[in-house]
């Protein structure tokens, strides 16, 4: 049906980045390889490359997030783009302006790329469907659906430490039900051929038919982390304590919080990841968060390189089309 939005152009180049679902293993590896190259930019004296010079990137955040927005902003600036930051959660929509009105207004300012975060699942697809065909949309998190750049930066971080996905057991712990990060991670891990993907949480935080995502479901942390190579902890929102999903933070930490002792069940060289921000004493204790297995801060710096890779790929596709159009005009 017409509702489908293709993230790729007819030649298979990345035009939007809305979800990992449906992308090929080769494309994901291409993104990881490019990210590797961009990692060097941060170490240069002048931390800039001119790949997106003259382009305008608008960070369109309908939900607050300082951290994610900042890394997108830095990524765009290092690509030499001009950046607009718009926090719309409280301004326009409160005045009754619709999502499309907001989009149309910004399009009129000749923005080339929208980085969108929104509380509704499917919002990035919706915007991509209605945006001007020359504009690229990057999903920076939509509802519970996807957070594909986070998923890719996590893959990048894993690959840095453990290059062979086929031999890995990855355990994701926490609120799967509400987590867009987990959905993108699971899709990426499975596309990259990860040996085994596990999810660990009480039943209240596991979505229906979770196995259909391609994961093994555990309700016990010691069982789920046994012999794992990678342990990813998900952030637990405070509001989950209301609404009968969980009894208390105390009981959650006692059963599902990662401690040094529990970590001993995993492989000796297992790494610990978290998309941040951490609730110390809820998802894990400080000893683990700040310990030698933790790669949490590397995730943050990798985030900039991975977002540079994805943004430059999409802008590259735009340039390709623009030059073809120009050639057509010259010949026509």
């Amino acid at each position: 049906m017409s509702a489908f939005v293709n993230q790729l152009d007819t030649q298979g180049n990345l035009k939007h980045f809305l979800t990992i679902e449906g992308l090929s293993r080769d494309l994901l590896i291409d993104i990881l390889d490019r990210s590797e190259a961009f990692l060097g930019v941060a170490r240069q004296a002048v931390k800039k490359v001119p790949l997106c010079k003259g382009k305008v990137v608008a960070n369109l955040f309908f939900e607050n997030s300082t951290r994610t927005r900042t890394t997108f902003e830095l990524a765009a600036k290092r690509l030499s783009a001009d950046v607009l930051n718009l926090n719309i959660s409280t301004s326009a929509t409160a005045k009754g302006e619709t999502l499309l009105d907001t989009l149309r207004n910004l399009e009129a300012m000749h923005v080339d790329m929208f980085v969108v975060r929104h509380a509704d699942s499917g919002a990035a697809h919706f915007i991509a469907r209605h945006a001007d065909p020359h504009v690229s949309i990057i999903n920076a998190g939509d509802g519970r659906h996807a957070h594909p750049t986070q998923g890719m930066l996590d893959m990048f971080t894993i690959r840095q430490k453990k290059p062979d996905f086929a031999g890995l057991t990855v355990a994701i712990v926490g609120d799967l039900l509400h987590s867009r990060v987990a959905r993108s991670q699971i899709q990426a891990l499975n596309t990259l051929g990860t040996g085994e993907v596990r999810v660990i949480a009480p039943r209240t935080l596991i979505p229906a038919q979770a196995e259909s995502l391609g994961v093994r479901v555990f309700h016990s942390l010691p069982d789920g982390v046994r012999d794992a190579d990678v342990i990813i902890l998900l952030r637990l929102q405070r509001e989950r304590m209301s609404g009968a999903l969980l009894p208390s933070e105390h009981e959650y930490f006692r059963l599902f919080g990662l401690t040094e002792k529990r970590l001993r069940g995993a492989k000796p060289d297992a790494i610990v990841m978290h998309p941040g921000p951490i609730n110390r004493g809820v998802e894990m204790d400080s000893e683990v968060a700040d310990g030698p297995r933790s790669v949490i801060l590397e995730q943050v710096s990798n985030g900039i390189a991975v977002r540079m890779a994805i943004m430059s790929l999409c802008i590259g596709t735009q340039n390709l089309h623009q030059s073809t159009n120009n050639q057509d005009q010259a010949h026509g």
């Binding site: 499917g122 509802g143 996807a146 959905r183 229906a208 038919q209």
Partner: peptide, 15 residues
């Protein structure tokens, strides 16, 4: 529907 598609798309389900 609370099922496979809703789970994959992250859309809140009705069981």
């Amino acid at each position: 529907h609370e099922g496979q598609v809703g789970t994959r798309l992250g859309l809140p389900g009705i069981p």
